[in-house]
């Protein structure tokens, strides 16, 4: 446990000094939000103010994109000599990966808070009580945690930082075929099946419901099951993947 804390501190220090990556992770979702609200928003009819509709999707894009960056920080370690040094100090894969994941959670919590701040500035007015906010924070945290572990696994599988970057791309694209930016019923019929049942959709629906004080229905549970499932599978697989990679 103390190893994981030391290694989390390490990854945070490394992140802070890689300012380009931090700025990209924070600016990109903000830019996307501005693009959607001001460029496309006028043409999209969702029944509410578009900014209110789109913020949960942007949150998710921000969290997913930022968490996916874990794949890149993990492969950077795997291709250098430092993992061998840690292993020769009897530090296993779990604390090494947990350090990356914990730093990712902290990094993305900050990034998400910034996106919320900008959203307020451009007119986002949620109707959420304290309990709703707590639930929103919990779901976002679970999502970030799940995607960070999953992307740590991709970092262990990928052969190059470029390949690991591909996972970031996937996570950036996944919110589009969902209810993040436009209602699903405006999409072609053959996309409905995927858009309605992919993991991002219940997470967005739950966030939207909680923030706008609408009935959340099953989406909150579905979101937690998806995130919890991904988390368990990814954290479980990462141990075996780490051993395979370092053998």
């Amino acid at each position: 446990m103390s190893d994981a804390i030391v290694l989390t501190g390490r990854t945070i220090r490394l992140t802070r000094r890689n300012l380009d990556a931090v700025l990209t992770a924070m600016l990109l979702p903000v830019m996307l939000m501005l693009v959607f609200v001001y460029f496309f928003g006028g043409a999209i009819h969702t029944g509410t103010e578009y900014v209110t509709y789109v913020v949960p999707g942007v949150m998710l894009l921000c969290a997913g994109f930022g968490s996916a960056n874990t794949a890149v920080t993990v492969i950077h370690d795997m291709t250098g000599g430092i993992v061998d040094r840690f292993r020769s100090l009897d530090i296993g894969g779990t604390p090494i990966l947990a350090g990356h994941v914990a730093a990712s959670v902290l990094r993305n919590t900050v990034a998400t808070a910034i996106v919320f701040g900008v959203a307020f500035l451009i007119g986002f007015r949620p109707h959420a009580g304290p309990f709703d906010w707590l639930a929103v924070a919990g779901i976002l945290l679970m999502f970030i945690l799940a995607i960070s572990w999953l992307s740590a696994c991709f970092g262990l599988i990928a052969r190059s930082p470029e390949a690991a970057g591909g996972f970031t791309f996937l996570m950036m694209f996944l919110p589009y075929p969902s209810s993040a930016f436009v209602p699903i019923d405006t999409m072609p019929g053959w996309l409905h099946g995927f858009a309605e049942h992919q993991p991002v959709t219940p997470v967005i629906e739950a966030l939207r419901g909680l923030l706008l004080d609408r009935p959340v229905g099953d989406s909150a549970w579905q979101a937690l099951v998806w995130c919890g499932g991904i988390l368990v599978v990814a954290a479980g697989a990462s141990g075996a993947l780490f051993r395979r990679r370092t053998a």
């Binding site: 000599g81 430092i82 100090l89």
Partner: peptide, 25 residues
């Protein structure tokens, strides 16, 4: 202790931070 062919230190940390980290580990 193992010192491999490729320097196993973090380029973005200072020399002191690298050694402190190893000490804590």
């Amino acid at each position: 202790s193992l010192t491999g062919q490729y320097a196993a230190v973090d380029e973005m940390q200072t020399g002191e931070e690298n050694l402190l980290m190893m000490g804590r580990l």
